[in-house]
């Protein structure tokens, strides 16, 4: 654990950041070994007397009980970890990559390029987020990549704006000017002098974006526009909601997926807070 924290340049004395990383590691392990931990989440279970094992409360055989269709909730929860990470990591990666590139280009080159890119950012921020994701998912088909695409298209401006202002301050520093006078190419200046200085900030936004992406995917799945071919926590909650789990008081069904979402998302927040504390003194100097 300590070496991992060092590798991520995390503050080792910030308890919240340590909790955050621990949560991530645990869920990552669950996602990796999901096949070992869970049985087939789609399998329809029957009791020994041949009846459908529907709406069973938690027991030793089914730690979190069963759904109204006789499926094992625990297995769904474990398998759901995978889609959460799949969506969270790919969407966050795409958002941060796009945002960082736009912010770099906009801040470094300035002028008309900057104007155009920043107006594009205004436009993206003028599009209602969830409605857009819903419409896109409905029109392009309920697949994971469409949800990721919709998230990327709308969430990049936040990262881009922050990176841009950071690049603007970096550009004023002596070493960039010196490199320019010495005849370094723009590409080289960006690669050698600017990019390394904004990477921590990109990572910070990435760890927050993972959370937003997972929340968005869960919302979309809950509304019924999510990927229908895989098990996700949002989809489980939609199942529970639609099959009267609330009125039956089947807390074992709808509490665990929600808690898992909360844990993964808050882990990102905890880590990013730790990051802020080590980053901002450096950014302010």
């Amino acid at each position: 654990m300590p070496s991992l924290m060092r590798a991520l340049r995390l503050p080792q004395n910030d308890p919240l950041a340590i909790i955050g990383v621990t949560i991530y590691v645990v869920f990552l392990l669950v996602a990796l070994f999901a096949d070992v931990l869970a049985s087939d989440p789609f399998e329809i279970l029957f009791t020994e007397d041949g009846n459908l094992a529907a709406n069973l409360p938690p027991s030793l055989a089914y730690p979190l009980g069963t759904t109204n269709l006789g499926r094992d909730i625990f297995s769904q929860l474990v398998i759901g970890t995978r889609s959460a990470f799949l969506v969270g990591l790919t969407a966050a990666g795409a958002v941060v990559a796009l945002g960082t590139i736009v912010g770099l280009v906009s801040g470094y080159f300035g002028g008309l390029t900057d104007q155009i890119l920043m107006r594009l950012a205004d436009i993206a921020l003028g599009i209602p987020f969830l409605p857009f994701v819903i419409v896109l998912a409905a029109f392009l088909g309920p697949q994971t990549q469409n949800v990721v695409l919709a998230i990327t298209v709308l969430l990049w401006p936040n990262t881009a704006r922050v990176i841009r202002s950071q690049v603007l301050t970096l550009r004023e520093r002596g070493f960039v000017e010196a490199a320019r006078v010495a005849g370094s190419s723009d590409l080289r200046i960006i690669r050698v002098h600017i990019a390394p200085n904004i990477m921590p900030l990109s990572l910070l936004y990435g760890s927050i974006a993972i959370g937003w992406a997972i929340l968005t995917e869960a919302s979309i799945s809950f509304l019924g526009f999510g990927p229908s071919d895989s098990i996700s926590w949002g989809g489980m909650l939609q199942d529970a909601y639609a099959s009267q789990a609330l009125s039956r008081g089947s807390y074992y069904w709808f509490i665990p997926p929600g808690l898992c979402i909360v844990l993964v998302v808050v882990a990102g927040f905890f880590i990013s807070r730790g990051y802020e504390e080590i980053l901002f003194p450096k950014l302010k100097d």
Partner: peptide, 8 residues
């Protein structure tokens, strides 16, 4: 609280 999905 902020990490909790609204619908949940």
């Amino acid at each position: 609280l902020r990490a909790a999905p609204e619908f949940w």
